[in-house]
């Protein structure tokens, strides 16, 4: 860890440093502030991993206990739609990282373009998810007590759908949250608030977005491809 930022005495700051509105008063330098934000975001991502992780652990153990039911149940999912959504998310990750890159290079227009592209990908993902859910609802492939699919050869398939809906549902909520955050960043980008000195929000939202992508990278084979 670099201590360079700390060796210089902190400036005696009034409420907010008048000359630079993006530097908060309790930080001495931009680098110190940027590093702090970054570590804060990573810690938050760590908690996200453990939050989803609980679901993964529950899924893993229930899968071990009811493996036949899980295998039978996953045939109700459409691999092609899952694949499509994986590709959409991967592309959105790429547009996101390009947005961050553009912001760091002071390219305002490119930043805006890439952010819009990312938002579009997120919307496509949710649309596909909407059709998938609709199909499940129609067939009665619902979680827990609402499961009403007829003619199952293997019992207990409702547990798979409990996990399917909880995992993809929580993930979809994260996508929605990401879209809200991205719109906020987009607005700032349009107004030209970012510069190569300060583009922390783009960077942080990017990190978050990649994590959402990363989680899907695991969800896809676990839910759609188990055998």
């Amino acid at each position: 860890m670099s201590e360079s930022a700390l060796t210089a005495p902190a400036p005696r700051a009034p409420e907010h440093s008048g000359h630079d509105s993006t530097l908060q008063h309790h930080f001495a330098t931009h680098e110190q502030q940027f590093d702090a934000s970054k570590i804060g975001m990573w810690l938050f991502l760590g908690t996200e991993i453990l939050l989803f992780g609980g679901l993964f652990v529950g899924y893993g153990l229930m899968q071990a206990a009811h493996s036949e039911a899980f295998v039978a149940a996953h045939h109700h999912l459409d691999k092609r739609l899952g694949f499509l959504n994986t590709v959409v998310l991967l592309v959105s990750s790429w547009t996101m990282v390009m947005a961050v890159h553009s912001a760091s290079k002071d390219r305002r227009k490119a930043t805006v373009r890439y952010l819009i592209a990312t938002l579009a990908c997120a919307a496509i993902f949710l649309c596909v998810k909407y059709f998938e859910y609709g199909h499940k609802f129609h067939e009665g492939l619902l979680p827990g007590m609402y499961y009403s699919h007829k003619g199952d050869a293997v019992p207990n398939q409702f547990i798979f759908f409990s996990f399917y809906f909880m995992m993809t549902g929580l993930h979809a909520l994260h996508i929605l949250g990401g879209m809200v955050a991205m719109s906020w960043v987009l607005r700032k980008a349009v107004r030209g608030e970012f510069s190569s000195t300060w583009y922390t929000p783009v960077d942080l939202v990017g990190l978050y977005w990649h994590l959402v992508d990363l989680i899907w990278i695991y969800l896809f084979p676990l839910l759609y491809l188990i055998s």
């Binding site: 810690l43 760590g46 908690t47 996200e48 991993i49 453990l50 939050l51 989803f52 992780g53 609980g54 679901l55 529950g58 229930m62 206990a65 009811h66 979680p143 827990g144 007590m145 609402y146 207990n156 409702f158 547990i159 409990s162 996990f163 909880m166």
Partner: peptide, 30 residues
Amino acid sequence: VLATPVLGITLLLLIMERTFHIGIFDPKLG
């Protein structure tokens, strides 16, 4: 930071079990 999220998901699962009977913790549901 490391432990609390797991409590979060545990409590959510409990709420889910109570409302939807998702079958993760209740032995009657497997």
